[in-house]
């Protein structure tokens, strides 16, 4: 059906997407297409609508208008190929589940919901937990982990889905430098396997190092494209509104200019 090898199909394409929670739109006529694989950043200030964009792509909030295609198809047709890591998991932390139980939840869509997981599936869940460095915490109740560890458990659950397109809403929020590095390694691995990972990212200094492609968002799609062409001070200023000097510094730092220490 999709034999257009000449034109790679974007992992995600959005056209004329408008979303409103109440009267005022939160996203306005957003159009965007990602590459078919690689690491993609969504950047924008607080309240810009980044989380809403992801939720709208996943049908978790209703759309006023617009069309979302994932690998060229509607979500319902490719749901198994999509993984989601929410910004702040709003879960019951006292829930009777161990870290491994939570990661195992990521296997059900593949293994089938109505029967217990087989050994192969359990091993896959264990491997996902090991990949985020939490193998030793497999049998710890989920609420008895630190905030950063909890974040990594949810990352492992997303990995366990073995999706082809991932939406990750701020996976680096509240994790230490070593964990951030570990997560980036995992993301790189996914990209090298030809998967697409869309990440909401707040650290402008590290964004150009981590990602290949970017969407600058603030109510509308301000700019998008490869890092080198879209991630410019001008575009950032339009996305963040004012505060130019700070942004210049951030971009300079990212470019490794003297006087500013690049991170990551």
């Amino acid at each position: 059906m999709n034999n257009t090898a000449a034109l790679p199909i974007p992992a995600l394409s959005v056209r004329h997407l408008t979303v409103a929670y109440r009267e005022a739109p939160v996203l306005w006529e957003v159009g965007w297409a990602t590459p078919s694989s690689g690491l993609v950043a969504i950047v924008g200030p607080n309240g810009a609508g980044k989380s809403t964009l992801i939720k709208a792509c996943l049908d978790l909030v209703p759309r006023l208008s617009g069309e979302v295609r994932i690998f060229g198809q509607p979500l319902a047709a490719v749901r198994r190929r999509v993984g989601y890591l929410p910004q702040r998991a709003s879960v019951d932390w006292d829930f009777p589940a161990t870290a491994l139980d939570v990661v195992s939840m990521g296997r059900y869509p593949r293994a089938g919901w109505l029967r217990p997981l087989g050994r192969f599936q359990r091993e896959a869940a264990r491997a996902a937990l090991a990949e985020v460095g939490l193998a030793d915490f497999a049998s710890r109740q989920i609420g008895q982990l630190s905030g950063g560890q909890q974040q990594r458990v949810f990352l492992a659950r997303a990995l366990a889905l073995e999706a082809d397109l991932y939406f990750m809403d701020e996976p680096f929020a509240g994790v230490d430098a070593a964990t951030e590095k570990a997560i980036v390694t995992v993301l790189r691995r996914l990209a090298d396997q030809g998967k697409a990972v869309i990440v909401v990212h707040h650290d402008l200094a590290t964004a150009p190092h981590y990602f290949d492609h970017v969407l600058l968002l603030n109510l509308r799609a301000i700019a998008s494209g490869p890092m080198s062409s879209a991630f410019t001070p001008d575009n950032l200023a339009r996305a963040y509104g004012g505060r130019l000097s700070l942004l210049d510094q951030a971009v300079a730092a990212a470019a490794g200019a003297p006087g500013a220490a690049p991170r990551g």
């Binding site: 989601y84 929410p86 998991a89 109505l114 659950r157």
Partner: peptide
Amino acid sequence: VLLFNPLRVLCFDEAFAAASGL
């Protein structure tokens, strides 16, 4: 018992349940 896994995921994390197509 039949709905054990879906109910478990629903009770733990409704957003995830919805995102995985339950």
